Structure formats: structure tokens, C-alpha cells
Computed example of a mutant assay.
Amino acid sequence: MEDGQDGHLLFLSTYIVTFLIGFPANLLAFFTFVRKLRSKPAPIDIFLLNLTISDLIFLSFLPVKMKEAADSMIWNMPYILCRLNIFLFFLPIYSSILFLTAVSAERFFCVSFPVLYKGRRRIIYSLAISVSFWVLVVANASVAYWAGYNSSQKENASEELPPPTGQRCYSNFTKEQLKNLLPVRLNIVLVFFCIPFIICCFCYINFIRILSKLPHIGRRRKLRAIGLALGTLVVFCVCFAPYNLSHVVGYIKRENPPWRMKAVMLSTLNASLDPVIFYCTSWEVRKIIKRGLRGVFGKHCTSVSSEHSTK
């Protein structure tokens, strides 16, 4: 994060745009999936609901990052918020990757094994997978926290990673901290990016291939399937790939890459791109959005027609 003070307005504008787009869209999706699960639950809705919760956790903490960016990346807030930064900012990145992978696998099994997929226990399995994912990401964030903070305190109790108020948060690592933290980051790349990305590519390639061979599948559904696959690919390549690449480069060079902060900034766009996946996957989300657009444009057309009539 060494380049954090350069171009802080870019960080601030990215955070604001992400919040303005992502928060209302994810909030709408959240209530839609909750209502769907109460009436007619499906495994895909459980994974999408957890993905929405992950985004909302991230977006709820984003105003703190806006304040940091507005202060030229200087941490002028309480020290406890800097500690929460590790969990409430980075943890949703890992959980989002896992639930995006779960959505891709669910879509693949839905069309590949339709008879087996209709089993009653599929809801229980989806709940168990979701709980396991949350346990995994919390445990991973805890290990990263321990590697970044506590390792230096054993060597020198006077050195704390986030300095007191008025300096930067989670950026200036000692050699001892990097020695413990860099292998953890490399493990994160493998578990939370490489393996999920391979699974997503395999599932969506076969998902689209199977749908294209089914004659009774309409053109719109096939286009939504392509949109779902492309949307997930964009999220992985734009939001998560640079962030994980910084881990690999950092491990090779045994340092924090100077551009790592910009890679972290790109990961925030995930919360504003996930609604595209919600739209392509959920019929209920599409219905609410279309109803809202009809209401907005209907009122606009009515007001325009009334103005012409009065003239």
C-alpha cells in the first residue's frame, strides 16, 4: 500500500461510485432473496443471499475507507477501526469468491444432473456449504491477522502494525511481519483465487455448452447464461486478479508491491458488479427491476403527456 497517498481522489471516487451503485442494488437483492427463501427456497437463492450479505458487509464498512481516502490515505480514526479493517474490508473479498464459485457449480449441476438435483436434501447441503464457507473465510482472515500483527509484537513489543492515529493503516510491515505474512498470502491466492477460478471456468463452459444443445431452451435464457458467465469472469479478472497478483509478486520480491493499494481498490468494484449476476440468475430480481423501471418511465410518460395536454 505504499502508493496510497498518490491519487487519493481516485480511491475516493471509486469508493463513492461503488457505494452508490452497490448498496441499493444489494439491498434490493437481499430483500428479494429473503422473501424467495420464505416462499419457495432453492439452493441458488441461498448462495445468492450469502453473496449479497457478503457485499453488504463490505459496503457497510466502505464509508470508513472513504474517510481514509479523503484524508489522503492517512488514518485519522480510532485504532479499533483499523483492526476491523482487516475483517470487514478483506473478509468479504474471500467470501464473495467462494459464493461466486458456489453459484457456478450450482448452475452446472442444475443442467447436468437435473434428476439428482431435485433431491430434497439439496437445501440442507447448500446451507452446510454456506456455513462452511463463512467458517473458512473467518479462519483465513484470523490467520492473516495473526501473521501481520502478532509476529512483530513477539520480536519487539514497541512495534505495532497500524501506527497511532495520524499515520497509515495496515501498510508498513516489518521484515519479520512479511516473513510470516507473505506465505499466508500465497496460500490465499491458491485457495481463494486459483482453485475457485478454475472451477468457475469449468462449470460455466459446460453450463453454456449443455444449454446450447437443448432445443427447448429459449434464446433469452441462453443469453442470460452467457451474461452470467461473462459477468463472473469480469469480476474475477478485474476485481480479484490484480489483488491476488500482488500477493504473488510480493512473495517473489519479499515485499509489499508499491501498486498493491490500487489492486485493493479494484477489488471494491466487486460489490457494484455482483448485481449483474443477480439479474442474470434470479427471475425475482429481474421482475422487481422491470417493475421499477416501468413505474419510473410510466410516471415520466404520464407527466409529459399531461404537460402537452395542458398546452
Results as ranks from 00 to 15, higher is better:
residue 310 T to I: 06
residue 259 W to Q: 01
residue 202 F to L: 13
residue 221 R to L: 05
residue 226 I to H: 09
residue 127 L to C: 11
residue 198 I to R: 02
residue 297 F to V: 09
residue 238 V to S: 02
residue 160 E to C: 07
residue 264 V to Q: 06
residue 196 P to T: 02
residue 30 F to V: 04
residue 286 R to I: 05
residue 286 R to C: 10
residue 162 P to C: 12
residue 15 Y to L: 09
residue 126 S to T: 12
residue 3 D to T: 04
residue 296 V to M: 07
residue 295 G to L: 14
residue 19 F to A: 13
residue 15 Y to K: 07
residue 198 I to T: 08
residue 151 S to V: 12
residue 194 C to S: 10
residue 43 P to Y: 08
residue 108 F to W: 12
residue 124 I to M: 02
residue 243 Y to H: 05
residue 258 P to K: 00
residue 123 I to C: 05
residue 102 A to L: 10
residue 11 F to K: 04
residue 92 P to D: 06
residue 141 A to M: 14
residue 178 L to D: 08
residue 199 I to N: 02
residue 282 S to K: 02
residue 169 C to Q: 01
residue 49 L to S: 09
residue 150 N to Q: 09
residue 299 K to M: 08
residue 269 L to G: 10
residue 84 L to N: 12
residue 302 T to I: 06
residue 290 K to M: 08
residue 311 K to H: 13
residue 89 F to R: 01
residue 23 F to Q: 09
residue 113 F to K: 15
residue 302 T to E: 14
residue 23 F to A: 12
residue 216 H to V: 04
residue 158 S to G: 04
residue 241 A to T: 02
residue 142 S to H: 03
residue 242 P to E: 08
residue 29 A to Q: 09
residue 76 N to G: 02
residue 22 G to V: 03
residue 111 V to Y: 07
residue 167 Q to E: 15
residue 149 Y to L: 07
residue 117 Y to P: 00
residue 166 G to Y: 03
residue 49 L to F: 10
residue 124 I to S: 04
residue 7 G to E: 00
residue 146 W to M: 12
residue 139 A to D: 03
residue 186 L to E: 08
residue 214 L to Q: 14
residue 243 Y to D: 08
residue 193 F to W: 15
residue 264 V to T: 09
residue 241 A to Q: 08
residue 297 F to R: 02
residue 224 R to I: 07
residue 21 I to V: 02
residue 278 F to V: 06
residue 136 L to V: 03
residue 37 L to K: 10
residue 211 L to G: 02
residue 12 L to Q: 10
residue 44 I to Q: 12
residue 177 Q to A: 15
residue 208 I to G: 00
residue 228 L to I: 08
residue 287 K to C: 07
residue 12 L to V: 04
residue 199 I to P: 01
residue 51 L to I: 01
residue 292 G to F: 15
residue 296 V to N: 03
residue 261 M to K: 01
residue 115 V to Y: 05
residue 126 S to L: 07
residue 105 A to G: 03
residue 19 F to C: 11
residue 254 R to I: 02
residue 249 V to L: 09
residue 176 E to I: 14
residue 204 Y to M: 15
residue 273 L to M: 14
residue 209 R to T: 05
residue 142 S to V: 10
